[in-house]
Design a protein around this nucleic acid. Structure first.
Lengths: 198, 198, 198, 198
DNA sequence: AATGAATGAGTTTTCATTCAT
DNA sequence: AATGAATGAAAACTCATTCAT
């Protein structure tokens, strides 16, 4: 029944461990997740965790890394340069929020968690910064006639911040992906208090 | 005779402890802040901490509570019903970002920290939710002719999210309060990619 | 009956802990002595050990320090400059071997142990070096007409080495202090294969 | 096909392992030497180590054994009964200190190390005791007219102790073999403070 | 013959928390 | 009112040792 004590090739065990770690970190936060409980969830012994990942911090970093890749991957379609900028932004929003919707624990635990963890802020920053950069470029290229002094960089920060806040609600199941995409798209182009006309 | 063992009135002691606690929590995060270091910083003995606050969690909760009050207080001027809605929003933004600017550690440590801490998310939610509600009302009352289906609630979430992201940059000293207020005000009314005319 | 769980003033506990530590280190060696067993032997909890001494290494260092002081103290009478050099050497030998005889575990465990422990060799070296220096001076001042090229420093090393080897036998109860003193004294002045007359 | 997995005859493997073990034990001490690092240094897998030696302790014992043999071998020329006793002693000293000089790590790690290790003291004692016995016999046979009550056994202990202390300095590169031999030879026959005449 | 995969059992260390004075 | 003294409980991490292939 148990069936989990077989000798597995390294690559398989690695994923198995990461799956467990993501789940436990996600449920308890970095500090309150114990290596014991992660090992238990992965049905392996603690030494394996250390053999494969070296330390709790490195394990967490590996979690962030893997989830970060998945995250970037989910958004990358937006990079298609053939699409008009605004379509690219929609694609990015869809990719982003769709990812959050389908990997709630990845989002909640790793993205949100990691930001609080001094030591990992920078690593998470990578994914986030790439998102901000992407957003910045899209805003820039889609704005024909910017006001003088427009700082697209901070605008991107703000928009991504808005996106994250909305993503939390998506992850919490409070609103659905489509509505969220719609809202953020509108926010980007017409402001929240959106004027009356299209 | 020696020094340091003054009998202080309860209220004074309480603030003294909270000041120390806020500082230590802010510097180290909830988990890495030890009761020992808080007691030391407050120049009192650990048992006093327990006598007044019962447990580490309750102490942290008290910190959040006090800082939350200050936070709400800083924003409350925005509630002035005599101002036109858009002015109210500017007042709120100014209050909010000004507070962050001047109480960076309160912001970084308690607001950002607490959100990561499972157990305190809801409590922080209070201040945050009040901010969101306020924003929602302002948006609502300032929008004469909303598009059908407009969900001001989620809009407020998004705007506050944007505000928080920008606030982090303010707290980090990367942009100044005025620029941030300007940006968010514009975001709210005309969208990030804002067209050229007012 | 137990009677060991009282609140004791710091100074008392410190000695109590050191006593236990010396004994356990002495019986098991540094590595095989666990903080658990030391705490148990001292009838206190492990955290006390850490509160007072910080780490296992520091605890061991403290043991060495205390025993080293006692050791030096036992030998110091030899420093009396009023005695003729040879009497001083006898006094030193008597102090040294007498100490070993009466503090067998201190000797075996701390002196012998510590020398093997990379990290502590230098600290033990202190006591030992002082002994060697002392010996060197005595040899020097008691030799009226040294052969040219005589290196008293290495001679002292050799004599102390002989003393330590003999001390081990004293500690092991194989020979008594007086015989040992006699032997070493003779060794120093007439060589092991000592000629026939005084 | 790949590389490194040769089938080697047992005897070769054994030496290979012992070489690695001696080196690692010598560098780190018994406790801080891990079976992992020994296996790595020997370029074989841990199970091989266990297959050949059964346990870490047995492996260490084997190291001591082999080095002990080499040690005794280095000194054995001294046993030549054709030489006059004093020449035999010089030969022994030369063999002993020459060995230490050329096999510093064997000396430092195995001889000194092992003495600290409860469990191995007796085994090291073997080589040492043989040395002491040899010394004793030489002293005995070279002393024509001993003082009554002379205990050659303890004298040998003392001389060997002196030899070990000097050997440490030789191993440390502080003095050279010839000077050391000279000193110890003089010590044995005329005492450290030896006057100028025979 | 040889090893990658796996673990049981311990170790040091750190806290939040509470007595006894 | 206030604290020095003390600890239970747990966490990260390591290592000698052994299967299953």
């Amino acid at each position: 029944m148990a069936g989990g004590t077989k000798r597995l090739p390294r690559a398989v065990r690695e994923q198995q461990m990461l799956d467990a770690a993501v789940e436990v970190f996600s449920d308890n936060g970095f500090h309150d997740a114990s290596m014991d409980s992660i090992a238990a969830k992965a049905s392996i012994s603690k030494p394996m965790l250390y053999l494969y990942y070296g330390s709790k911090e490195e394990l967490f970093a590996s979690c962030i890394h893997r989830e970060g890749l998945r995250f970037v991957e989910a958004i990358s379609p937006a990079g298609d340069p053939d699409l008009p900028p605004r379509e690219q932004l929609r694609a990015a929003l869809t990719g982003f929020l769709g990812f959050v919707d389908q990997h709630r624990s990845s989002w909640m635990v790793l993205y949100r968690q990691a930001i609080g963890q001094q030591a990992f802020a920078s690593q998470v920053g990578n994914s986030r910064d790439r998102l901000i950069e992407l957003t910045e470029k899209l805003l820039e290229s889609s704005t024909k006639d910017p006001e003088p002094g427009t700082d697209f960089s901070i605008m991107a920060v703000a928009l991504v911040g808005a996106g994250e806040a909305v993503a939390d609600r998506v992850a919490g199941g409070e609103i659905d992906v489509d509505a969220a995409v719609e809202l953020l798209d509108k926010l980007a182009w017409r402001g929240l208090a959106g004027g009356k006309k299209k």
